[in-house]
Write a protein that binds this DNA or RNA. Structure first.
Lengths: 177, 177
DNA sequence: GTTCACATGTAACAGGTTACATGATTGG
DNA sequence: CCAATCATGTAACCTGTTACATGTGAAC
């Protein structure tokens, strides 16, 4: 995933600071399908401004550091539309947890149980975070795309939670060492 | 995910060439939770051999290029066990498809429909690939970890397939431009 | 007191990818 | 004939991360 396109598509939902973008990707609406760090956001936003795709203004705050707020302009909007015409590259999913489970015969049974407990807790947390996102919008006002994506995340976490809790014995009783 | 640990854990399931490892990660049993390219596998295997964690032998073939087959030795096995004691880092999931769906109001309805059709076909393909993996092993002989991980992938693809096919209208009828 | 959240930015480094280089055989 | 599969490996490049630098206010 191209960092520039990601920033443009997030800005398209409204003007934001680099810090805002990071929060959205780490905790908010974009959380479960993107990855980005602050150290790549700031230079990217600066580049986008230099290229004339976004504009920035500084918002002074009392007691807090100033925020540099970026907004998409027409050229940026056009550029985004162009980028979105390209076919999406395949999903990337990397899970050390699954690698560990695949190697369960090398793990102590107590460790497996602990890892699974933590995993289930993690799924539950993600589900409640998604539910919180729904609650932020009044009935029917959540955009279709956002609703679809939140629902997608929800069914994934629900399905794997069910699967892991019903099939954990498969791993916990494996004749390991 | 550490490339060295990944190679060691795959080799732990049996001796393999770099090419074999790539195939396993791209099409086989490790497919849906790891990412690795040949250009990082070969140098990693060479490094592992230099460090004395694996041994290699060359297998000559008629009509095909020779294969360099690597096997885990005791030191490598110990090293792997040590690595597996570390807590797994959080899953990484990146999906340009979901970003596109989130931005559905910027896409033509026909494009959305086409993207969804392709997506559903992709899920179906993944499910049948997983089923093929099951079939490779005779009844009951698939190791617990592998079975668990395959089942995990299966429920994910099944859940998202169901979700996308039942909720596609949410995006296709979105008042875009 | 100390850690966390807010807030932006740079520099050094690590990691992995794309493209290149090579070459035989098989299938369409 | 051309593309694909098998098979290994290197070099140049790019991108993104960790760590650093700086500073306030709130909460514990």
């Amino acid at each position: 995933m191209n960092t520039k396109t990601l920033c443009l598509s997030i800005l398209h939902f409204g003007e934001k600071s680099g810090y805002d973008i990071k929060k959205l990707c780490s905790d908010g609406y974009f959380k479960h399908f993107v990855e980005i760090s602050l150290a790549s956001i700031y230079p990217t936003l600066a580049k986008l401004e230099k290229e004339g795709l976004v504009t920035s203004r500084v918002e002074y705050q009392v007691g807090k550091p100033s925020r540099k707020i970026y907004a998409l302009n027409e050229k940026g909007s056009e550029n985004l539309n162009l980028q979105l015409q390209e076919p999406p590259s395949p999903d990337k999913h990397i899970s050390e947890f699954l690698l560990l489970m695949k190697c369960c015969h090398l793990l102590a049974p107590e460790r497996i149980s602990k890892l699974i407990d933590e995993r289930l807790a993690y799924y539950e947390k993600e589900i409640s975070l998604i539910d919180e996102c729904y609650d932020e919008f009044p009935e029917g006002e959540l955009p279709a795309g956002s609703k679809f994506v939140l629902g997608y995340g929800h069914v994934v976490y629900k399905a794997v939670h069910d699967y892991v809790s019903s099939n954990r014995s498969m791993l916990e009783t494996a004749t390991g060492h």
